[in-house]
Nucleic acid binder design. Structure first.
Lengths: 213, 213
DNA sequence: TAGATTGTTAATCGATTAACAATC
DNA sequence: TAGATTGTTAATCGATTAACAATC
């Protein structure tokens, strides 16, 4: 599958968007799409689209374009989103539960197998099929279950000991909604950070900039 | 303040992170920091830190470094995050409420002045100080209140008419959690997209890649 | 003074865009 | 055949890194 050895991170960041557009086109019954049309949706150029896709193989046909369903499947395979890696959620607050529901609803990439919190009010309650467990059970749970990924939805101030427990139990990938820098302390971990407050600040910056112009 | 005319988007993306680290350092009582130390935290280079900061002015002292509190204030000003732009939330689902609480809790950038949903079960309920209103009231509300920013936490399928109402009422900035592409349809809008499912797919991709190596 | 560290210019690197032969 | 569109190489552009005089 992989045509080139090192795929640049900017290409990888664009893959989920290609995938979304191809799903849409497929749902609309469109069978073929040109690099130009994909570029229009990506706010990019036809050149870039062709460069991007060519990282993984030759999927188009001269004069015709790309087969939508086929390209969608190819990108699905590249991303590996048919997998269901076992994941646990740490922190059943607002964001935690929103994420849990979204992940469970998607039915892709990850399967939620546990939720943990330290709040006695929450422990024992159910979220979908899953009962919220005491965070003290985390280590035992990880020892008894194969956990690929931890979703961290707790404040930065309490992440470190939790991350140590998880790392000690062999968890090596994290979807991190806290501001704790996991890469700083742990080796060989895959971390996908989501910093909502950074996003907010950038919107703020652009508002200010516009007002000043 | 602005030393250079065109600040590159990669610099802007890094500003919130500088700000966070400076706040941390300040909280720790650190008075001065070198570009090297900032770079270590940013996973960057001293050179890049100095280039970034020099977009906005000369804030350091040779041989000494940067004054933490001063630089934090400077970046706070650049980002404009002391402002409180009036914002409304559309969609009081899981993510919507999580975001609403986070925004209100931050007390920075935006002040939530309205929440809208179409679910009769939700309408009339309170979130903090704010009563969830019927989405049908959206237009009237916008006409009677100054609304800077709309936070879109509704599914893509229902965004378009809502966005049209908002745009018609003069709303020109959006924090968009849906997959609807606002820039495609509306001119002169500031859109900050948050695509959680894209983030999830990228984590998935990296997991797959690691397993294959 | 010597060591540290800045601001800034120049060099390098990587990503994007343009161009075009190949071919459907 | 003519028009469209690909894959791919070359050219351009922009961002990152290195280097170093200035100076605290």
């Amino acid at each position: 599958m992989a045509k080139r050895e090192n795929i640049s991170s900017s290409v990888i960041r664009r893959l989920p968007r290609y995938y979304r557009f191809l799903r849409e086109l497929d749902a609309m019954g469109v069978t073929h799409v040109s690099s130009g049309e994909l570029a229009r949706r990506m706010r990019s150029t036809a050149s870039q689209v062709r460069q991007d896709l060519n990282c993984f193989g030759e999927f188009g046909q001269q004069g015709i374009g790309y087969n939508v369903a086929m390209l969608r499947d190819v990108i699905e395979d590249i991303l590996g989103i048919k997998s269901l890696y076992p994941a646990i959620l740490i922190g059943a607050g607002n964001i935690g539960l929103a994420i849990a529901n979204q992940v469970m609803f998607e039915g892709r990439c990850f399967e939620l197998i546990g939720i943990f919190d330290k709040d006695p009010e929450k422990i024992g309650k159910k979220v979908g099929e899953i009962t919220i467990q005491n965070i003290d059970e985390l280590q035992t749970f990880c020892e008894n279950n194969s956990v690929s990924t931890a979703i961290l939805c707790v404040p930065k101030s309490v992440v470190e000991p939790i991350a140590e427990t998880l790392y000690g139990a062999g968890v090596r990938s994290f979807w991190n909604f806290s501001h704790y820098d996991l890469n700083m302390k742990f080796d060989n971990v895959i971390v996908e950070n989501v910093h909502l407050s950074d996003s907010l600040m950038q919107l703020c910056f652009r508002l200010k900039k516009q007002n000043n112009d």
